[in-house]
């Protein structure tokens, strides 16, 4: 086995934590659909794909997330086009007020499709694929030099790993043993013009990162317990890469695993059906 598996499933004592994170994910999915529909913009599938990862990070992992505390954990949304998912996470954990969240993609907002550093709580503005992991490396070195308890988390898309700069950063992080750095790949297997395996095959993803000197862990990107287990597994001195297996458009049946929902925006009927599906989830949780 060239790479590690996540630790055993979360025990019963964590059931409250898991229920809370699952509820947060459902709230986020509803918020994502509402804001995307109001703004008539796409990238919905990507935001839904990372909703559970962001729920776990922002709702359960990041210390002092979205504050200016010097020892806070830092988060870099390398795949900036999923920013709506980030805004939803920040909003539903109480780090972004309603009117700001409502301004998504409206005129005179800072909340564009890609996150700007002018948004309180967003440390790194992103949008051009391939660049975020390098910034995360710089943050990790800086925090280590400061002997800060802060850790760095970076979320990449799988197709983002087409970019050469990602592998420059991968080499650097391994060479400098940045064990305060955790990266996650949103491995939904789709990219703008097709399936990753057809456009530029990335497999075997975990072995590639292992070969570059990272501790690679595979996880179910929609299973909160699996993600927590991978993130909280014991460190071995190497930077960590979590290959989070996800489905684009997760939670809305007609979007799931459809390349079109990388860009497409919803019509009224699609919005109503999508909302009913994620609201069904909310009702289930309340019952």
């Amino acid at each position: 086995m060239a790479f590690s598996k996540p630790s055993s499933p979360i025990a019963g004592s964590n059931s409250t934590r898991l229920a809370r994170l699952e509820h947060l994910s459902r709230q986020m999915r509803r918020g994502i659909l509402e804001k995307a529909y109001a703004a008539k913009v796409g990238h919905i599938g990507s935001a839904l794909s990372v909703a559970d990862i962001l729920s776990v990070l922002w709702g359960g992992i990041l210390r002092d997330a979205g504050t200016q505390a010097p020892g806070r954990d830092r988060f870099v949304l390398c795949k900036g086009h999923a920013a709506l998912g980030l805004y939803a996470a920040m909003h539903f954990i109480g780090r972004m007020d309603q009117s700001t969240f409502d301004s998504y993609c409206m005129d005179d907002t800072h909340l564009g499709v890609h996150p700007e550093p002018t948004i309180p709580g967003v440390d790194v503005g992103t949008g051009s694929l391939g660049q975020g992991l390098s910034v995360a490396c710089g943050l990790a070195v800086g925090l280590r030099l400061d002997r800060s308890p802060g850790r760095v988390y970076a979320l990449l898309s799988d197709a983002e790993c087409n970019e050469g700069q990602v592998w420059e950063a991968a080499q650097f992080a391994a060479h400098h043993k940045l064990d305060n750095l955790t990266a996650l790949v949103d491995a939904n297997g789709t990219q703008a013009l097709g399936r990753t395996e057809d456009v530029l095959d990335l497999s075997p993803m975990a072995r590639r990162w292992e070969a570059f000197g990272w501790q690679a862990i595979e996880a179910d990107g929609h299973d909160h317990g699996s993600l927590l287990g991978a993130i909280e597994a014991p460190r071995d001195g190497r930077p960590r890469m979590i290959i989070a297996k996800t489905v684009i458009g997760k939670g809305v049946s007609y979007m799931e695993d459809r390349v079109a929902w990388h860009y497409k925006s919803m019509n009224a009927d699609e919005f109503a059906r999508g909302l009913a599906e994620v609201d069904g989830g909310l009702e289930e949780a309340a019952a």
Partner: peptide, 12 residues
């Protein structure tokens, strides 16, 4: 990568 690392370092 150097430009990105410098960005992160400057943020600290």
């Amino acid at each position: 990568n150097m430009a990105g690392i410098a960005t992160g370092l400057a943020m600290t």
